[in-house]
Amino acid sequence: MLVIKDLVASIEGLKILKGVSLEVKAGEVHAIMGPNGSGKSTLASILAGRDLFSVDSGSIMYNGENLLDKSPEERAKEGLFLGFQYPIEIPGVSMVNFMKTAINEMRKHRGEKPLSASEFLKKMREKKELVEIDSSLTNRSVNEGFSGGEKKKNEIFQMAMLEPKLAILDETDSGLDIDALKVVARGVNNLKSPDSATIVITHYQRLLDYIVPDFVHILYRGRIVRSGGKELAVLLEEKGYELIRQGEVNL
């Protein structure tokens, strides 16, 4: 589904990713872990097409096509979803209007008819229950005045609505209490299917107790320094990032 090869990327001349390779197949859950500043969020942003970063070399193929050629909305329409670390507030734009526009854009892309108002509202109701989001939130403007936890839940809600093929969750767990974390994890697990994949970016192992990854990668100073199964996350939790600092030496 997703093949990243030797990705090198920078921002204003500063190299952030220094050769990242990663393959994600349908049905898999990957976790990318690493300390602050290791390049995790940069990777997520580049996948979604944020033009703040320049890709200096390497390639990203998504379903056999060059992802880097596509605009952010094309990527989205083809099933790539980014759960933002810091979801953006858009004053005055209601959640309903926002989601309806997004969904119908995607349906148009797939050659489907737009959802009628009642179909849309029905879908919205279902998904709201699924992710246990307070129904008043969806009556408000996009993320405006939402608490940190509400914003994160809203990201999962949008993911549920848009039914992506590849979901990238950028530190969705940060700032959440344990109950909210469980809700987010349950949302993600419920949406899992054999033909979709998830990349979970996180700082802590905590989230991985609830979303069990097939693979864990450690990103450190712009490189994936170690990959393994879910036990790597446990090891990391025990030894801390000291592990990779040693690991750096005996890779």
Partner: peptide, 25 residues
Amino acid sequence: DQIFYCNQRGIATEDAIGLIINGYA
């Protein structure tokens, strides 16, 4: 960042601007 957020949800820039302006007004 607002436009990008809309883009990421599949909304083209032109529509995103329309949405945001109408939200603003």
